[in-house]
Design a protein around this nucleic acid. Structure first.
Length: 953
RNA sequence: GCAGAAGUGGUGGAAUUGGUAGACACGCUGGACUUAAAAUCCAGUGGACAGAAAUGUCCGUACGGGUUCAAGUCCCGUCUUCUGUACCA
């Protein structure tokens, strides 16, 4: 009866927690502090969970349980990021509806998660593909569409405010930044208008202007289009200019797509990083992604031409070092500028670089290429004529797609100038630019630069900007690398847009008629015309009278209109899900003000670092937007973030000869020419802990080796070679947590995953050490049991001071460890405690009750069982976490009374813990120090066994 | 190239943040129990040298310097490995 039967214990308590709603969070806990612990929710893939997935969940669960013991009202929910590509790919191949696949996968995930004893509040589960959920994703989209960013108040406001401004005062009421927006993309007649002119614009003209301000807008943007596959590909789906799957050619194609104006928030996204507790590397990569650089915008007039070329530079101090301009091949002025005699060469160059993929261009940085346009720009300060070149080292996507080339100060400009034999004026005093450009800003003086000569970098920048502003050819500015985010996907399995088109203009559907539910289609592929999969839906038109989705054939462009065919990207649903957990069943709002106010932001967020510039940036953007518009009260979603490391797999390789006729054991490969041997993955399930392969199983799995000659080790075994790789189905190195739970139990799995090493570090999975952790749990169990029959036995006697010391030492360490997220060392601490208490044969209630609570966050099942055996009726989850008492830890203090020569007493503060005997021996042994000791009471005495090293004070 | 993190026994990893390096665990070796195996328990386990033994001495935290009574920890330089990112003007 009383062996540690983990299977039945774990099942019992998992059922108990589910039935009693032990971990339900309250939205109205008066007077109780709240704590919100969140995991990055998973995409439910068909492969199920492997042992790497739970690592972060175990850590967050320990913390959540710990906080409950500490008296917090803890919100610890879980859900699914259930829109996504794999389910759609599977649908394309099999015709099975992605929603069915997704539901099956979720069921499997849930089963696996339940076995590990997580304290999730499942009442609050959310799924991004659920219409009740994406209804609010659509709602947020509409709010973004109905908003603009006011750079004066530095926040998003309703678009109706902007319309009111235009109606009252026209575009003149806008500040400089906002006016610049008007100048950028609009036809000239719309760039400046007064109130009457605004009133006179057609609705289309008004909309064209407004869409320059809306936080989500339709724009022509470039995509990677693969005609053969009939779909758009992401950058990482393209390898060497052809599609990863099938190797079909990919072209860049402009398509009308929704974009998110995240650039409006660039500065605030940067500033916000200062106030959140995130790992520095992750903040660093967000900073880099946002890529703020300060400099100047300079406009060059063009000889014999109307327009201007605008460039961005971080070095306005080098303005007199400019010897030519370079445009990106895609620059809009290229065609207009090029003189007839250079037309042919320029066109050839532009076509050639258009055919090179972006990746190719980036990879190939060494080759210098370019072509002269025949046109000249006028230097705004000196009036000198500067040749205008085209070069593909200038990127269309950064800055203005044009640079002022300063060969003496920039290595790329220098190389370009050398290659095409362009002048390289030196504007740095006493610095040689014979062989390379001088790119440093600091210890140099500007020379040969008119009024800038003699100034240093900072002075020259200010003076140059002032001069440019005075002559109307530039101004100081800040440039960001961050681009607006394309928000349309030509896919089926994503949120439909709440948008229909009236005369080609997008219209939002009234939020009260949401959700717009994903329609049925006959296949999950694009249409023959290249429309996205939603183009196949029959029921896909909007009836503006009945306010519902109707059949496409009813479209009459009077009351029934076509709906948007794109869907939203994966990050749409994941950018706000953490708010939905607060009030998951709300039918009238995405969450109630009361719930949002109570829970605020996520106190602790645990997940992988791969989301640094995706999910974690977009979420911050949406949260700041929702904050601006007054829907929520916080402007950062995640106060503290921890990246758990990845658990890697240990792949196993079998060596075979190239013709497959021989299999060679790992220890014998040195006898063979390495050239002719190949390694192939084999399933780790067929390999023992000593790397021995079960050949029978292997041959059954791979019958092609049925007749192969097997070269074994001397002892007749066949060994594989191990290598650490990412865990993946295709590498046959996946370890399923279910198997571990079957063999050792969930508590062992939880402790072992923590024991493997620091949470934030990546580490290979190896089952080798798991028996140690399992043995510890058995030892713990035995502490509460006695005798040969191992019956439950806890003594009511007072424990010894040694036992109390062990307990309080453990309490102190574990409390400190949890607060620092060093879960690995607290597992060791538990093991030490169990060893010491076993040695002391200490089984008193006063020791064993706190011990059970202490371990409950880590190994909740066994803790609950022991707690119940000790006669408690309520779950251990509600018990206060033990606090240590210093009085049991006397030896940890560093103050010792010392007497020698029979009479004198001193109180010494020591640099390390030593016994009284050791200190006295040291004092007596060191005659040199006795005089010093007699002179007063030293502050600090450095003692190592046997001698005193130093006395301070 | 740039940025960030790291380098400790056969292995995973500890080290109170400057105080006896190698906790804890795996593995290995020996022992107890057993007909035997498994399980369990006990002991040993960084290296070298000396000793029958307890024990002692020296060397040891990637490498080379430095600061300090004292350095895995702090400073300078070098090497290596990961992880991002990249013609960013």
């Amino acid at each position: 009866m009383s062996k540690y039967t983990f299977r039945s214990i774990e099942e019992k308590w998992q059922n108990y927690w589910a039935q009693n709603q032990t971990f339900a969070a309250k939205n109205d806990a008066v007077g109780q502090p709240k704590f919100y612990v969140l995991d990055m929710f998973p995409y439910p893939s068909g492969a199920g969970l492997h042992v790497g997935h739970p690592l972060g969940y175990i850590a967050s669960d320990i913390y959540a349980r710990y906080k409950r013991h500490k008296g917090f009202n803890v919100l610890h929910p879980q859900g699914y990021d259930s829109f996504g590509l794999p389910a759609e790919q599977y649908a394309i191949q099999t015709g099975q509806h992605p929603s069915k696949t997704t539901q099956e996968n979720i069921a499997r995930y849930r089963e696996q998660l339940d076995r590990m004893g997580f304290s999730f509040d499942w009442q609050r589960e959310v799924r991004t593909s659920n219409p009740d959920y994406y209804r609010w994703t659509q709602w947020i989209f509409i709010q973004l569409y109905d908003s603009w960013y006011d750079t004066v108040q530095d926040k998003a406001r309703s678009i109706s405010d902007l319309i009111a401004i235009f109606e009252q005062a026209g575009s003149g009421a806008l500040n400089e930044d906002l006016n610049a927006v008007l100048m950028q993309n609009l036809p000239e007649e719309l760039t400046s208008f007064n109130a009457e002119q605004w009133q006179g614009f057609t609705p289309e003209q008004k909309e064209t202007i407004l869409s320059e301000f809306r936080l989500t807008y339709l724009a022509e943007s470039e995509v990677n289009w693969c005609p053969a596959l009939g779909t758009v590909l992401a950058n990482d789906e393209i390898v060497n200019g052809v599609s990863e799957r099938g190797g079909h050619p990919v072209v860049r194609k402009k398509m009308k797509q929704w974009s998110m104006r995240i650039t409006a928030y660039a500065q605030r996204l940067l500033d916000g990083l200062e106030n959140i507790d995130w790992p520095e590397p992750l903040k660093e990569s967000q900073r880099h992604w946002i890529g703020r650089s300060q400099g100047a915008s300079v406009r060059f007039d063009i000889k014999g031409h109307q327009g201007q070329i605008e460039v961005f530079t971080t070095r306005p101090d080098t303005i007199f070092g400019v010897s030519f301009l370079t445009l990106a091949p895609e620059h809009e002025l290229v065609a207009a500028l090029t003189t007839p005699e250079h037309k042919e060469a320029v066109e050839a160059y532009v076509t050639a670089s258009a055919q090179r993929s972006e990746r190719e261009r980036m990879a190939d940085v060494k080759t210098i290429s370019g072509v002269f346009t025949g046109a000249y720009a006028i230097h705004p300060l000196s009036g000198v004529q500067l040749p205008i070149w085209i070069g593909d080292y200038v990127l269309a996507g950064y800055g203005t797609g044009a640079v002022m080339a300063v060969p003496c100060g920039d290595q790329r400009d220098f190389d370009f100038a050398k290659h095409f034999d362009l002048p390289i004026p030196n504007i740095f005093k006493d610095i040689s630019i014979e062989n390379e450009a001088y790119a440093l800003k600091d210890p140099c003086i500007i020379d040969q630069s008119d009024f800038l000569s003699g100034l240093n970098y900072a002075q020259a920048c200010l003076a140059a900007i002032k001069a440019l502003e005075d002559c109307g050819h530039g101004h100081g500015t800040i440039n960001y690398r961050l681009r607006d985010a394309v928000f349309s996907r030509q896919r089926y399995w994503g949120e439909p847009f709440p948008v229909y088109y009236k005369n080609g203009m997008p219209q939002m559907i009234d939020p009260e008629h949401l959700p717009i539910v994903l329609p049925e289609v006959d296949a999950y592929l694009p249409t023959e015309d290249g429309d996205p999969p939603l183009g196949r839906a029959d029921q896909w038109a909007w009836d503006t009278e009945a306010h519902c989705v109707v059949a496409k054939e009813l479209i009459d462009n009077k009351t029934v209109f076509p709906l948007e065919l794109n869907t939203m990207p994966g990050w749409a649903g994941s950018s706000w899900y953490f708010f939905r957990y607060m009030d998951p069943n709300n039918q009238s709002e995405f969450a109630s003000a009361q719930a949002l106010d109570y829970w605020g932001s996520v106190d602790l967020y645990i997940g992988g670092s791969e989301h640094a510039t995706g999910h974690l940036l977009y979420s911050r953007f949406w949260v700041k937007f929702l904050f601006d518009r007054g829907f929520i009260g916080v402007d950062e979603p995640f106060k503290k973030l921890i990246n758990q490391g990845m658990i890697l797999g240990e792949s196993a390789f079998v060596y075979r000869s190239a013709d497959g006729k021989q299999l060679v054991s790992a220890g014998r490969i040195k006898d063979y020419d390495a050239q002719i041997l190949q390694s192939v993955h084999c399933d780790v399930a067929m390999v023992s802990l000593t790397n021995e392969l079960d050949l029978e199983q292997f041959v059954a799995w791979r019958p092609e080796y049925n007749s192969a000659e097997v070269i074994t080790e001397a002892d007749g075994t066949f060994k594989v070679k191990r290598e650490v790789e990412k865990m993946s189905k295709s590498k046959f190195n996946v370890v399923n947590p279910d198997d571990i739970c079957d063999q050792y139990g969930a508590d062992t799995l939880r402790l072992y995953e923590m024991f493997l090493g620091p949470l934030e570090q990546s580490k290979p999975w190896s089952t080798a050490g798991i028996t140690g952790v399992h043995g510890f749990l058995k030892k713990l169990w035995k502490l509460y049991h006695s005798g040969d029959v191992e019956s439950f036995c806890v003594s009511e006697q007072r424990p010894s001071s040694d036992a109390l010391k062990v307990l309080h030492k453990t309490i102190k360490k574990v409390n400190a460890d949890i607060q620092e997220f060093s879960f690995n060392t607290s597992v060791s601490t538990f093991m030490i405690a169990a060893n010491e208490l076993t040695a002391l044969k200490s089984n008193q209630r006063e020791i064993l009750e706190p011990l059970a609570v202490l371990i409950a966050p880590y190994a909740p099942h066994i803790a609950e069982e022991l707690w119940a055996l000790m006669g408690h009726k309520q779950s251990i989850a509600a018990v206060a976490y033990p606090e240590h008492d210093e009085k049991y830890l006397v030896e940890a203090t560093k103050t010792y009374p010392i007497s020698f020569n029979g009479k004198t007493r001193f109180t010494l503060e020591l640099a390390m813990d030593l016994s009284k005997e050791q200190i006295e021996a040291a004092v007596m042994a060191d005659e040199r120090t006795i005089a010093q000791l007699q002179g007063g009471t030293p502050k600090k005495v450095i003692v190592v066994p046997g001698k005193i090293v130093n006395i301070v004070g």
